[in-house]
Design a protein around this nucleic acid. Structure first.
Length: 125
DNA sequence: AGCTTGACCGACC
DNA sequence: TGGTCGGCCAAGC
């Protein structure tokens, strides 16, 4: 091939790297402590780049390997199609939940939301 | 190049 | 409490 002007890394084909932004999103997701959650918007804001929708896309496509249940919607609604799986995790991690009027469970964002702070010492309510 | 869609968000009513 | 609307940022078509 004469046209080698386009530089493509050899290993890129065998080991396709995820977009840098996606890796950042996944990194943040892994950093969320058990029992806590971050909203898509929070993650985007924390990264200082992109928006909630972009984070949502990244999670939808590549969020499988990471604790995806800790990245949620701001209204606390469980991820459609994964409610069962998510609830399992929440119960296991003692994530603050709330029972809606219809009996369905949602996250209690007021308590479960994590702002990215390192830790929150002894709960002094 | 323009329009639609999406694991969204906040403001309003 | 719940439905609508406009805004937002990329990706697909």
């Amino acid at each position: 091939m004469e046209r080698m002007s386009q530089q493509r890394t050899p290993d890129a084909a065998a080991f396709p790297e995820l977009p840098a932004y996606v890796e950042r999103v996944l990194d943040v997701a892994e950093r969320i402590p058990p029992g806590r959650v971050m909203t898509y918007g929070d993650v985007a804001e924390w990264l200082g780049e992109g928006g909630p929708r972009q984070v949502g896309r990244a999670m939808a496509l590549y969020g499988g390997p990471v604790p995806w249940w800790r990245v949620v919607r701001s209204d606390g609604v469980l991820l459609p199609g994964h409610e069962r799986r998510a609830l399992e995790r929440y119960r296991m991690e003692a994530t603050p939940l709330r029972t809606a009027a219809d009996g369905s469970q949602r996250l209690d964002m007021r308590r479960a939301r994590w702002d990215g702070a390192p830790a929150e010492g002894p709960t002094h309510t």
